[in-house]
C-alpha cells in the first residue's frame, strides 16, 4: 500500500501562487468577501507564507507554499471528538465535512495552522457555482476544512484504472498543486517506494520538515535552498 507524500523544492519555487490558485479551483474553495478577509478568514488550503521571519510586519524572505503537512502523527485527529478528521491507511489526513461539528479543537491543535473554519456559508449561488468541481463537496457554515491531497483524484484514478482493466500506478494520482506548478517545484508520490522520485528527494541532504521537533512526522517535506553562491 502506498504512503502518499509531497516534496516541495524551495530552490525551484518562485512563490507565484499558481499552486494555491489551482487548489482553490480544484477543491471548490470559496473566496470570502473583503470584509471577512480583513478579519483573516480567507481560506487557503495551499497558503503562500514567508519562508523566513524578519520580525513583526516587516515582510520576510521568499514566499513558500504550505499545504496540510499530512502528518504521520497528526495532533488534529487526536482532539477531534467526532472522528471527523482521521488518518487513512495510505497516510492522508482526511476530513469528513459532514461529520464535523465545528468545535475547532483541531484548528487549535494543528501547529501548522492549516485548518480553516467556515464562519459563514461562503457558498455562492450567483453564477460561481456553475464552475464548481462536481467531484468535491462544498462546505456549509460551521465546518472546518483543509487540504486533502486532492483525495478525490486518488479515487478517480483508481476507478479509471479499474475501467481500463489495468493495475493502479502511483503516477496516476497527482494533486492539483503538483500538476500545476509551472516551475515543477512540487513532487508527489509514494514515499514507501524507494525508487520513486519523491522518495529520493525526501532523502536529499536539503530535505527539512517543518517543526520537526514536535514529532508530528509530516509527509510534506521541503527542500531548502542551497547555500547562496559566494558573490560577496
Amino acid at each position: 500500500m502506498a504512503r502518499w507524500g509531497m516534496v516541495i523544492d524551495l530552490d525551484r519555487c518562485t512563490g507565484c501562487a499558481a499552486c494555491g490558485t489551482a487548489c482553490k479551483a480544484e477543491n471548490n474553495i470559496p473566496f470570502v468577501d473583503p470584509e471577512e478577509s480583513a478579519r483573516d478568514r480567507t481560506i487557503n488550503w495551499m497558503d503562500i507564507i514567508p519562508a523566513e521571519e524578519h520580525g513583526e510586519h516587516n515582510g520576510g524572505g521568499p514566499m513558500m507554499p504550505r499545504p496540510c503537512l499530512q502528518c504521520d502523527n497528526p495532533p488534529c485527529i487526536k482532539v477531534c471528538p467526532v472522528y471527523a478528521t482521521y488518518l487513512t491507511p495510505e497516510g492522508i489526513v482526511a476530513q469528513n465535512f459532514g461529520r464535523c461539528i465545528g468545535c475547532r479543537f483541531c484548528m487549535a491543535a494543528c501547529p501548522y495552522t492549516v485548518k480553516y473554519f467556515n464562519w459563514h456559508d461562503y457558498r455562492r449561488k450567483d453564477g460561481f457555482h456553475l464552475y464548481e468541481n462536481p467531484d468535491v463537496s462544498t462546505r456549509p457554515a460551521g465546518v472546518v476544512e483543509k487540504c486533502t491531497f486532492c483525495h478525490h483524484r486518488l479515487q478517480l484514478a483508481r476507478e479509471r484504472a479499474r475501467v481500463e482493466k489495468r493495475p493502479f500506478r502511483a503516477q496516476d494520482y497527482v494533486p492539483a498543486c503538483a500538476e500545476t506548478c509551472p516551475a515543477e517545484a512540487i513532487e508527489f508520490g509514494d514515499l514507501d517506494d524507494h525508487n520513486s522520485r519523491v522518495s529520493r528527494l525526501k532523502r536529499s541532504p536539503r530535505a527539512r520538515s517543518l517543526l520537526q521537533e514536535l514529532g508530528t512526522k509530516p509527509k510534506v517535506v521541503y527542500l531548502v535552498r542551497e547555500h547562496q553562491n559566494e558573490i560577496g
Partner: peptide, 13 residues
C-alpha cells in the same frame, strides 16, 4: 482569487 493574494509578503488582500 487574485484579490485574495495581492501581496502575500505583506498580507495584502
Amino acid at each position: 482569487w487574485m484579490q485574495e493574494q495581492l501581496g502575500p509578503h505583506v498580507n495584502g488582500r
